[in-house]
Amino acid sequence: MYLPDFEYYAPATLSEACDLLEKLGPEAKVFAGGTDVLSKMKQELLFPKAIVSLKNLGGLSEIRLGNNNDVIIGAKATHNNLIDSPVLQEKYPSLCNAARQMANNQVRNIGTVGGNIVNAVPSADLPPLLIALGAKIKLVGATGERVLPLEDFFTGPNKSVIEQDEILTEFIIEEQPFTGSTYIKFALRRSGALAVASVAAAVAMEGNVCRKARIVLGAVAPTPLRAKKAEEMLTGKEITDELLEEAGSAASKESKPISDIRGSEEYRRDLVRVLTGRALRKAINEGHV
């Protein structure tokens, strides 16, 4: 395995980077942590003519509180930055835990949050919980910027709405109605394994009544998938074991898994059922974990 030839750019500013991407066209690839790009290039799955590295762009890896208690996560923050962030540990420890479940420590040390999203891999660990928390993303392009819900970002495996000249710069998690959130990953060993199925849940509880719920499934559809029927089932209802089981079954029906070397469609569908119940229970009972 070897890296094919490519041109390398490391622009100093964001606008320079966007201009470069526009100029170079679709054969240019953005490079942040590189954990995905480099390995795909070595496996001859990706042949970019140019690499535009974000390494010289400052200020994109901060995790901070913004206006109105918004949590702002710079797209260049690594998974380990998330895990170690006092802001997240205080506000959404569930995100720290989700980040901790990704790959292994070496990858978490260099792989960025932005990369985990822009790759648009259905089994990625961060999208389900970020979507459940209603995260928005900022995309900066050569001619301007736009903010959109992360939920609207993915269009298929390795496909999203990002334009050629756009760079994902930050995540915005607005102050939540949710009282609890969590991410449960089911993988075939305890570290360094992709999700066979995963479920993120966020719930707004008032006593034992669920005012609002979000359930997002990973690795069981071409994109991270909201289980909206299951969510509706819970909204405004008093939580019972039965209801949680029904929600699990509903989510299972909403999932669209495929069979591959990690698991059959049938297995994944049942995992969604089980994991949905567990994620909801955890978010209801334990807060943002």
Binding site: N104, L188, R189, R190, S191, G192, A193, L194, I261, R262
Partner: peptide
């Protein structure tokens, strides 16, 4: 529990890497 060399329909090794040929980790 974990390890098995898998092949695709052409007889090529389908998991010839350490991510998908899953040996246990220290955590397991």
């Amino acid at each position: 529990i974990w390890e098995e060399v898998l092949f695709d329909e052409n007889g090529d090794v389908a998991n010839g890497n350490l991510a998908e040929y899953r040996m246990p980790t220290a955590l397991d």
